[in-house]
Simulated assay, not measured.
Amino acid sequence: MSVLWKGLSKRPLWEAGMRTGLKFVASAILLSTISGVAFADDIVASAQHDLVIYAGPQNGWHGPTSAPKPIAGKKIAFISNDESNDANHAWGVAITEAGRKIGWDVTVIDGKATPVGWNTAFNQAIALKVDGIITSADAKSLKDAIAEAEARNIPIVGIHAAALPGPDKELGLFTNIQEDPRDIGKAQADWIIADSNGHARVVVTSHNEFAIAETKSRAVVERLKACAGCKLLDYVNSPIAEVAQRQPQLVLSWVQRYGTPLYVTAVADYTLDFQVPALRGAMIDHSAVKLIGADGQRSAYERIRSGQYQAVTVSEPTEMQAYQAIDELNRALHNMPPSGFIQAPYLVTPQNVNAEGGDKDAFAPSNDYKKHYLEIWGIEP
């Protein structure tokens, strides 16, 4: 009896302990859940905050305010990575325009999207005895050709020619002009995080034969790691020279393998030129697959405006970069340091697609960049 009583007397204490333990566990689970929700909310809020800046007005001038007076009669070459690509062609057109305004003769040479083509184009430029070279080809694939140019005292300015903007002595570039690809990748990822409310399923694609492309795509991956509710489904690297053959099949395979909704990033809008027709032909709903591009070519603006799969692009100011390339080459020819100017990324969305040059399907900042460059060159606008 006494034993039974003792056992019964201890039972309420055990139950009380159990209840206390359960409350502790429940509180811990609740706290963990709240913390997880708070963390998810924090990353979404952070992404939304950044997007306001990325997609905002571009009317301030942050470029150089002085420059040496250009010497007329210089002969230069623009070695285009690939003239079938909108951005590369646009750089050549604007470089020719800016060069002529200061009395320079510009020759555009097509590198045809391959290292062999780039080296051939470089040799052609050297044979022309040019005073300077501007190139959008990947400098890492041009070490011997660049070394030959350096031996002949031919300065080289890159556009998207290296992993990062600014001077690159190792690659032989006086300077490299581009938005910072780490920021571009972050802007792409931020849009995905915000649009999905922190629950995106993502395929990241790249063309890693270009240092800038790999840097950009890896930055997307790094930012997505901060989003606990997001899932990186695949990281796909394929040569840009093969996009026409490979991308239609690839994008449909991702839909089949991973289902929808699905986000797909690209380091260049050019890639999406071949994904969109495949999605349309397979009658995939526009809201099921959202494409996130970069560069800001004409077709990207058209797709964003019409809601044809591509949701956004991080646009490059191709014409302003061309004017900057002429300015930087002029500084090199005067044995002066680079200007140090780096344009911040600009995110084109359905809401601002017609702003900042978007009405003409290009990113042209409303900061009077042509006027500023002509003024510091001592030329009447």
Rank of each mutant, 00 (worst) to 15 (best):
N59Q: 06
D42E: 13
V44C: 06
S66L: 07
K101G: 04
A98H: 11
T135M: 10
W104K: 13
S27I: 14
S66I: 08
K23E: 06
G117R: 05
A90I: 04
E83A: 15
H49E: 15
R19E: 09
N119D: 00
D41W: 10
K75D: 00
A113M: 02
R100K: 12
H89C: 04
N81I: 06
F78D: 00
Q58M: 06
F24W: 05
Q48F: 02
Y54H: 02
S35L: 10
D50C: 04
A38E: 05
D110F: 06
E97G: 04
D82A: 12
A40T: 07
I71L: 14
I43N: 12
E97N: 07
S27K: 09
V93P: 03
L22C: 15
I76F: 12
A55M: 02
I76N: 07
G60N: 10
F78Y: 03
R100Y: 07
W91H: 14
V44T: 12
G21F: 14
A72S: 14
V44R: 10
A121P: 00
D41Y: 10
P57A: 13
G63A: 01
A28V: 04
G92H: 08
T20C: 04
A125I: 15
K74A: 11
E97Q: 09
Q124I: 07
A121L: 03
I95W: 12
N59E: 07
L128S: 12
W118R: 03
V106D: 00
G21N: 08
L31V: 06
N88R: 08
D138N: 10
A137V: 14
A94L: 05
K23F: 13
N119T: 02
A139S: 00
E83T: 15
A98L: 11
I34T: 09
N85C: 11
G92K: 07
A47E: 05
D138H: 05
V25N: 00
L51E: 05
D50A: 09
I95V: 15
G103I: 10
A77K: 15
A87W: 14
H49T: 13
I29D: 00
K112Q: 11
S66R: 11
V93E: 06
I53G: 05
T20Q: 02
T135H: 07
E97H: 09
